[in-house]
């Protein structure tokens, strides 16, 4: 205490800080994260939108062309292939919350060793999508893959899912569902853990069991888990890139491309930065609908 009296250092500055401490402290705490986030996230979004109005190869000066990139995009067949593939991803990926819930119901037991079993089921989510893609490329390989070993064993002819335009997207989605189901399973296991046991017991006393018990008593209590599972699954489907890049590079004949990969290919391989930015902007606008939905529900929960 006495040290502060004996050391009269810069009393005025100190008091300025002291007087405004409660305003300045949050500013100080926020600034580093805010600067980093603005520089690498907020500004690049605006910049991408701006680039999308230009013809640009990444090196020579940008030429402003207004909405021409968008006009070209909306008459580009490849855009519609990518968009319809994204819709397939979106719809089929919603099997992940369903599958995750079924798996969680199956595994929600407290026998010895179940903790390890649950961790092993969760395993695919922990490994990189690159590894998942490698594993499934090989699984589908017409010469070496397990898939054809199994098909031949039951007397069916072999297939090459990644070489077939009509099968390829579905084959990649199956690979993506593997880790995604694991993720949803964990969300639901946590949800089931927090189900109110008294409510369940009361319902059982009243003779409610089996599916009606699940549907009327359990599922409503799992709503927070369902909400997060659906949100991460939808975002994951719209963001799909890794598996497409690893398993097919969008092929054969661009039949498995998605918006994320189409954009990457146009910008990196075709040097069409403006066109790539336009694709990214469209994808961004589509995702904004879901992001807005998520934000509104999350902030509404906050306000309660």
């Amino acid at each position: 205490m006495s040290s502060s009296l004996s050391l009269p250092r810069a009393p005025q500055r100190r008091s300025l800080w002291r007087r405004h401490e409660k305003t300045l402290a949050p500013l100080l705490f926020l600034t580093p994260a805010l600067l980093a986030f603005c520089l690498f996230v907020v500004w690049p979004i605006l910049s991408s939108v701006w680039i999308s109005f230009h013809e640009w190869d990444g090196l020579s000066p940008k030429v402003f062309i207004g909405l021409d990139n968008y006009r070209e995009l909306f008459s580009d067949d490849k855009f519609y292939v990518a968009l319809s593939n994204n819709i397939k991803w979106l719809v089929l990926y919603l099997l992940a919350p369903v599958g995750g819930l079924m798996l969680a119901l199956f595994l929600n037991q407290q026998l010895r060793g179940m903790r390890l079993v649950k961790a092993l089921f969760f395993f695919p989510f922990v490994i990189s999508q690159v590894v998942v893609g490698v594993i499934f490329s090989w699984f589908y390989d017409p010469n070496f893959g397990l898939l054809n070993v199994v098909l031949n064993a039951v007397g069916l002819p072999g297939i090459a899912p990644l070489g077939d335009e009509h099968m390829v997207t579905y084959a990649i989605i199956v690979a993506g569902l593997w880790p995604q189901i694991a993720y949803c399973m964990i969300l639901y296991l946590t949800g089931l853990n927090n189900v109110n046991p008294e409510l369940v017991e009361a319902a059982r006393m009243d003779g409610c069991k089996g599916f009606p018990l699940f549907w009327n008593i359990i599922l409503p209590q799992l709503r927070p888990a369902t909400f997060i599972a659906v949100v991460v699954t939808v975002i994951g489907a719209l963001r799909s890139f890794d598996l497409v890049a690893i398993m097919t590079n969008g092929g054969p004949y661009d039949s498995s491309t998605v918006l994320g990969y189409f954009m990457y290919e146009q910008a990196i391989f075709a040097y069409r930065m403006g066109y790539g930015a336009a694709i990214a902007t469209v994808l961004f606008l589509i995702m904004d609908v879901y992001i807005a939905f998520f934000l509104v529900s999350m902030l509404r929960k906050e306000a309660e």
Partner: peptide, 10 residues
Amino acid sequence: FIPFQILMIP
């Protein structure tokens, strides 16, 4: 939740 592609070029 934004797509990475919107950040890529900048």
